[in-house]
């Protein structure tokens, strides 16, 4: 499974990177969104995969069972998911405004707008 996930992550990174290299600004946003997914999945996989090991402390126990998944990467990823949503919303709004102000979505045309 880890092997398959590694390939999946590789494909996500490749797709994200390809999109980041485009000139159309909407595709760049898609690339950013995919990149954060790829990073989250990478941390998750690197943290170790466990089936049926939800990091809850069982009744009558004071610590997690040995078979439980590591809670730490999960906490990190949770934060990352939320932050990347904030970034995405902000970027979308910014692109929208840039489009209104300049009338183009080609990043190569987005230069020297200070003068206008």
């Amino acid at each position: 499974m880890e092997f398959l996930l590694a390939i999946t992550i590789g494909v996500l990174y490749a797709a994200a990177f390809y999109l980041l290299l485009r000139r159309g600004v909407v595709r760049i946003i898609l690339g950013i969104a995919l990149l954060s997914q790829a990073v989250n999945l990478l941390i998750f996989t690197a943290g170790g995969l466990r089936e049926g090991g939800v990091p809850f402390i069982a009744e009558g126990q004071t610590a997690l069972a040995a078979t439980s998944a590591d809670p730490l990467p999960q906490a990190l990823i949770l934060t990352a998911i939320v932050i990347s949503f904030g970034v995405l919303a902000f970027t979308l709004a910014m692109v929208h405004r840039a489009d209104q102000a300049t009338g183009t979505d080609d990043v190569d045309d987005l230069k020297g707008t200070d003068q206008t």
């Binding site: 390939i7 590789g10 990174y13 490749a14 797709a15 990177f17 000139r23 159309g24 909407v26 979505d105």
Partner: peptide
């Protein structure tokens, strides 16, 4: 409100980018 997808890059550039992306993906995997 979002702009439509423009098609700006040349085919050769796309192929180059796709190749680099594929190598990058492999390394990350």
């Amino acid at each position: 409100r979002l702009p439509v997808f423009g098609n700006y890059s040349k085919k050769a550039v796309k192929v180059r980018d796709a190749l680099v992306a594929a190598v990058f993906g492999t390394v990350m995997a």
